[in-house]
């Protein structure tokens, strides 16, 4: 990993088209400005990692595709109260 120290107002250029600028440092938080071509996606790293993990779990091959459809077609059990509405 390349380590660089920057002060507010200073920037880092990645390749020829991506520029990251340190806008402000306040306490333990750094505000960054990102300039990148429109076609390059930019993610917060921890979000990217979470999506990556979710996609890999979602894509894992399974023994039986039919068992997945059984879950979607199975009637909801009546025994337990529905207490999972916390969205």
């Amino acid at each position: 990993m390349l380590l660089l120290s920057r002060k507010p107002g200073q920037g880092i250029r990645i390749g020829s088209d991506i520029i990251i600028t340190v806008k402000e440092v306040r306490g333990r938080q750094v505000r960054l400005g990102i300039e990148a071509p429109g076609e390059v996606p930019v993610y917060r790293e921890e979000i990217y990692r979470a999506i990556q993990k979710a996609n890999r779990a979602a894509a894992a091959p399974d023994e039986s595709t039919q068992s997945i459809y059984d879950i979607f077609n199975k009637p909801k059990p009546e025994s337990k109260p529905d207490n999972t509405e916390d969205q």
Binding site: A54, I71, F72, D82
Partner: peptide, 10 residues
Amino acid sequence: SVRETLTRPT
């Protein structure tokens, strides 16, 4: 959430 539970998959 990245993992929002479906309460009613059917």
